[in-house]
Design a protein around this nucleic acid. Structure first.
Lengths: 202, 202
DNA sequence: CGGACCTGCTGACAATTGTCACGGGTGGCC
DNA sequence: GGCCACCCGTGACAATTGTCAGCAGGTCCG
C-alpha cells in the first residue's frame, strides 16, 4: 500500500530533488511531477495520485487555485500545500481551497513524510504555531474595492494610473487607500500593502 | 576522484532533497550541509570540500557574503552560487565575491551537475543569457548615499524616519530620493526601489 | 592647481498623497 | 420599511513627497 504522489513545483532543480528524496523514502511513489499549476489537474486525472503536493508560487495557476480545482474535479486526491512562506493568509486560503495538509519548506523531511502519510489517511495536518498565527490575524476587514486598490498599487503606480485601470475617480481611490491604511493601522500605502499581505488580507 | 561538496541552503526540506539528489549522482559526495550563511566557513574548514554550493537567501550571512569570505579563507574551495532568482545584480555580485559558477534553481539537474564538475576543474560557468542581461544592466549609477536611502525605504518608512535612522536632514533625504528617481527613470520611490533592485543597483 | 564628483545642507515650490465630512445610490436582511 | 454595509463620488484641507537652485565642504586625479 504505497502512497502515490503528484508533485507540483516550478523550480526544476527543487522538483527533481524532492522527487529523489520522496522516492528514497519507502512507502512513497512519485507518479507525476509538473512545473506549472495549470498542469496539475490533467496530471492528476491521468495518474490518479493519492496525494498531491503543491507549491504555492507557480506559473500558470498558483498552488492554492490548483488545490481548489483539484478538490472539486479529482475528489479522491487529497492535497498538501508545500510552501516557502509560513504566511498566515496562505494557510487560511489553503484550508478554504480544500487542502488537508500545510507544510513549510524549512520543515525537516520527516515532518513532510509524516504529513503525507497522515493526509493520505484523511487526517488534517497543520503546523500548530502557524495555525495560531492565522487565527490571530483573523478574517480580512477589507472590502473588495479596498483590496483591488491595494493590489493595483503593487507596481508602485500613482493614484491617477490606478484610477484609470479600475475606472474610478481619483478621489475614490484615495478614499479607499485611506480606509485601508486605517484598517491596517499603518501610515501609508506601502506599509498598508505590506501588512495586508502578511495577514493574508488580499 | 569524487568531488567533495558543501551545501548551504536555508530551507531544510530543500537542503535534504538536494543532498539526496547529489548523492545519487555519481562522482559527488556531500560532505557537509548547513542552513546558515555564517556556518559555511567553519564547515568548509572542517570538511575541506572541493566545491561549495551556496544559496543566496540565507539567515546569518547571505550566500554572496559567504562566498567572499570563503574565497579568502579557504582558497582551495571553489564556489557555485545557487539561487532562486536570475537577477542581474546577483550575478555581478557573485562574480565580484569570487564565485566561479552561477546556477538558477529552475535549471535541470544535469545543468547543475555539469556546472559543479566544470567548476571543480577550475572553469567559470554562467548561464549565457543571464550574463548578457547583467552586462546590459551595467554598473550602478547610484551613489552610496542614494543606495542607503533607497534601502532604508524598503520598510515603507517616511522621510522623517529615514532621516533619523541615517542622521541626515529631511531635505537631504528627499534630494537623494529625487536623484535616485531620476537615475532609474521612474516616478516615485517605490518604483525607483523596484527597478534599482531588479538591476542589481543596490 | 583646477575640474569632477560626492556629501550635506537650505529654502521655495509644485505635485501627490492622506484625511475628513458629506452626499447619493445599491442591495441584503430583520 | 428601516437599517446597515458597501459602492462611488465631491470638495476642501493638511501632510508628505518630489523638484529645483544654490551653497559649502571634502576627496581624488590629471
Amino acid at each position: 500500500m504505497t502512497i502515490r504522489l503528484l508533485l507540483a513545483e516550478d523550480q526544476e532543480l527543487v522538483r527533481t530533488a524532492l522527487c529523489a528524496l520522496l522516492d528514497l523514502e519507502d512507502g512513497f511513489e512519485v507518479v507525476a511531477a509538473v512545473g506549472r499549476g495549470d498542469q496539475v489537474t490533467d496530471a492528476a486525472l491521468a495518474h490518479r495520485p493519492d496525494v498531491a503536493l503543491l507549491d504555492i508560487e507557480m506559473p500558470g495557476l498558483d498552488g492554492l487555485a490548483a488545490a481548489a480545482v483539484l478538490s472539486h474535479q479529482v475528489p479522491g486526491c487529497r492535497v498538501v500545500i508545500l510552501t516557502t512562506f509560513g504566511r498566515a493568509g496562505y494557510l487560511r486560503r489553503a484550508m478554504e481551497a480544500g487542502a488537508l495538509g500545510f507544510v513549510v519548506k524549512d520543515a525537516p523531511a520527516e515532518v513532510l513524510a509524516d504529513a503525507i502519510r497522515r493526509v493520505a489517511a484523511g487526517e488534517r495536518v497543520v503546523d500548530p504555531e502557524l495555525a495560531a498565527a492565522t487565527l490571530a490575524a483573523g478574517a480580512s476587514p477589507l472590502t473588495a474595492r479596498e483590496r483591488d486598490v491595494l493590489n493595483a498599487s503593487r507596481s508602485g503606480a500613482g493614484v491617477a494610473e490606478i484610477a484609470a485601470k479600475l475606472y474610478l475617480s481619483e478621489g475614490t481611490v484615495r478614499n479607499y487607500f485611506s480606509s485601508a491604511i486605517a484598517k491596517t493601522a499603518t501610515r501609508n500605502r506601502t506599509e498598508a500593502l505590506r501588512t495586508a499581505d502578511e495577514r493574508g488580507w488580499l
